[in-house]
Amino acid sequence: MNKAKQILLKALSSPDSRLDVEKSRKLMNLKALDPLKPFYRTLDTKFYREGREIPLRIYFPDSESYQTAEAVQKGDMTDNIYPVLLYIHGGGFVTESVDSYSRVCRNLAKHTRHVVVAIDYPLAPEHRFPTQVEDCYAVAKAVFADRNLLNADPDSITIMGDSAGGNLTAAVTLMARDRGEFAPPRQILIYPCVNNNYRENNGFASLMENGQDYLLTRQNMADYLDYYQSSERDRENPYFAPLLAEDFTNLPKTLIITGEFDPLRDEGEAFAAKLAKGGNQVECHRIADGIHGFFLLETFHPAVKKTYEYINEFLETEGIQD
């Protein structure tokens, strides 16, 4: 990484300050002000669990896929020939939304030729573990089993998430394996948060090497988990911290992307190693110069472009590159 970029990132990082939830949410929500949003092909729908509404937004790669989904929603059981990405956004369980991730999801639909279903799960600290995991699991189960939503072939569905969304993706696939109600064939984890401790040196070198000067700080991560947990006991639950799972067998084919200067780099790569040791098909790629959150940049950025190459190879699709 060049020196000028390193100096800028250090100036923007605040390693010792505690997380201000409202300030962080307002800052992240600025991304929802997207002038291109009216031109995206989307459908908004809702899922209900325990009397609560979970908004979903569906993004389409082209007009044909949009028209097919519209027909399914109206009760015409037209076969959906498009593969599906079920996307769970990041934000430390505390910030971000489907609105702030609109451009990311639109780019995913366009550049992978997949229909993208984005889950607007509730945020901490107003809602705490295991609400987010259970909500995402319930939506995933419906996408796999309910032909009235998209009429998608279960074998064509991939679950994907970044950061905290990577945590929830890994937790959902563990839960699906344990409960036996559906079987995701693939998962994609972008710089996932899969550990349970960021309060001190947790054994992973990247936390200390990259936990101060690269936007996401060790203090941020400690605060996020404090807001997410319902009690300290949660930290020993593998659905809270998937890296702690004792059984890594019979899990989906997995792609993990990490960033060279991400404090979560080493835990993501350790998670990949555990999946491989459990006998699963795993790919893990470290993106040079990648910091936490780089996937939210535009697709012409070298790190994002390289990530899309790995994603499309993993999905066995040609995709589209600018």
Rank of each mutant, 00 (worst) to 15 (best):
P61Q: 03
P38E: 08
K141V: 11
N80T: 02
H114V: 08
L86R: 02
E64A: 13
I58W: 12
S100C: 10
V116G: 10
T42A: 11
R113M: 09
Y87V: 13
Y66G: 08
R103I: 01
L36Q: 15
S97I: 11
V116S: 14
R106A: 08
V117W: 09
F93C: 12
L43Y: 11
S102V: 01
P122F: 04
M28K: 04
Y66I: 00
P35F: 13
G90L: 05
F60M: 06
C105G: 12
T131W: 02
A69W: 03
T68V: 13
A32S: 09
Y40I: 10
Y87P: 11
L108E: 08
S97L: 11
K31A: 15
L33W: 10
N107Y: 08
P55A: 02
K46N: 08
D34N: 15
V72T: 04
S63T: 04
Y59T: 06
G75T: 02
K74M: 07
I88E: 01
F129H: 14
Q73M: 12
Y121C: 01
F47R: 04
L123V: 12
T42C: 15
T131F: 06
I119L: 07
R106F: 00
V139D: 08
A124H: 05
Y59I: 02
T45A: 13
P125T: 10
S65P: 03
V116F: 09
E126A: 15
P83M: 11
V117Q: 03
E50A: 01
E64R: 09
V104N: 11
Y66A: 02
I81F: 11
D79I: 14
S100T: 09
R49K: 13
N80I: 00
R103Y: 02
V139C: 09
P35W: 07
R52D: 12
Y40P: 12
Y48W: 02
A118Y: 03
H114W: 09
S65G: 06
P130F: 00
G90S: 14
G51K: 04
T45G: 09
H114Q: 14
Q132K: 14
G51C: 07
H89V: 06
G51A: 07
Y121W: 04
T68I: 00
I81R: 13
